[in-house]
Write a protein that binds this DNA or RNA. Sequence first.
DNA 1: CCCCTGTTTTTTATACATAAGAAACATATG
DNA 2: CATATGTTTCTTATGTATAAAAAACAGGGG
Lengths: 294, 294
Amino acid sequence: MRTDTTFKRAFNDMIDIIRTLDPGMELPSENALRAQLGVSRTTVRKVLAGMSARGIIVSEAHRRIVREQPLQTERYPQQETLAISEQVETSFMEWMLRGDVCPGTEINEAELARQFSAGTTIVREFLNRFQKYGLIEKRPNAGWVFKGFTANFALELFEIREMFEMRSARLFAALPDNSPVWKQIQSMQAAHLELLADIDARFQDFSELDSRFHRLIAAVAPNRFIESFQDVITMVFHYHYQWNKRDERARNEVAIKEHLALIDALKSRNIASIDRACRLHLTSARETLLHSIT
Amino acid sequence: MRTDTTFKRAFNDMIDIIRTLDPGMELPSENALRAQLGVSRTTVRKVLAGMSARGIIVSEAHRRIVREQPLQTERYPQQETLAISEQVETSFMEWMLRGDVCPGTEINEAELARQFSAGTTIVREFLNRFQKYGLIEKRPNAGWVFKGFTANFALELFEIREMFEMRSARLFAALPDNSPVWKQIQSMQAAHLELLADIDARFQDFSELDSRFHRLIAAVAPNRFIESFQDVITMVFHYHYQWNKRDERARNEVAIKEHLALIDALKSRNIASIDRACRLHLTSARETLLHSIT
DNA sequence: CCCCTGTTTTTTATACATAAGAAACATATG
DNA sequence: CATATGTTTCTTATGTATAAAAAACAGGGG
């Protein structure tokens, strides 16, 4: 049976919406809420029913009035808002990166399902989707092999990444002056400078900025295969560094400076210096990753 | 319940093995057969039991003797040797390329399952795996969207392909003289010439040669992401041309000649001419595909 | 006639069941 | 003792069931 995580997430979000309203005020229509919450009206109605039952709102004929501010304690815990498939993802990542799983290990669907206390179907589905990251491989009728988060993996990853990023950076520089991207890159630069100024306190914000920066560059000439590869990179960085925080501040500071250099190069539109800045950044990122894999 | 396609395939293969033996001769051990057939001993035993039941072999204590040559008519039909997942793949491809499914069409798991008379689980699994080809996209809690086998798709595909092939060709040319690949490219050249000489009769053999050729070049510097992308290319060509045979002979003849030019360029080790030959071939392949998409 | 809510139908996410197939274990035989 | 066959156990492929979520349908009021 499926879990009601969509409902719980919507419920939590609805709390935030109601908190912007004062008691006595009327709630937006079901349809408006549906759009705001990004769920179906069915779920909206379920949430409203829940709010009613808790006395947070009162349902009058054809309208709903806020009766009292919901308490933060009425929120569902974060854990319960994650679909099983998402929990499985986390479990698997932990299993992979934390545990001492060596390359070549055979992965057993049934065993994993037991370990994660999840259904076999969902574990299987996860592995199928996860395959695209190049870390596991299927052997028909006989489970999977874990290929290992190895130096080789990092090298292959960065070989592709370099091709893709250089391509995008070049195309970026070729855009006409009146393109809106120049404004975006300007504010991107500002964001980097801001973060750099306050690096000691905010170094953890870099990861998100990094992703945004690279996506901005890639977005100038959309290519679904490149976009899909960005997911691989995001996954690697997200999970790998989540369990490997050594030197995070220093690492990020270096990367920010490299980004700024690349931004300058892009603005100069000089292909040679773009190539240089881009390659420099990727080489340093690669070395960092390799270093942390050991 | 799972189908016994593995058994049936192994049974058919076993017929071929027995046909190489004369009546009265002894069969290899279960283990040897297991290795030859590429299945588990469990399946081997099931096949042997089937052969026994049909009077094709006689099981004596600890050995099995061929009693009579199996007839080709005892083979299981090809259809029954395909796993459901493979049948679903074919059905889906047909649905996609044959039918008049326009870009943006919503794909409904339940509906497809009904249409293909397959379980929902397996359709879902297929779609998950198929996602990597960039032709469909998932919307959480609400099925999939078909993005269309469009000109854009072909262009994006070829943009990546060009990057990858150029990279591999260059690395190829940089290999030392004593590398075994030079021998392989030599026989590859011979195979091309042979096919070209008999093009009228054998033009359909090109598709397989094409795949082998590109894989040989890519194999010099293995990269799992490039390999995985080759699957995309293979899929596109396999299915697309299967339903679009216009000008096949002429198309293939041109491609063979382009391959030969690339082989010459590789042998010359001149980067400039390699780049030229490679780009020429890819451009022409792209135009052909674009043309056939209409 | 448009938008809103109440109701019904369809689809998706997930668990579970089961035959086919793989793997592990046990025993026999040269 | 090694290798082959017989037996048992575990895993995978695939169908089915079901609550949650989405979508479609149906009045009703401004």
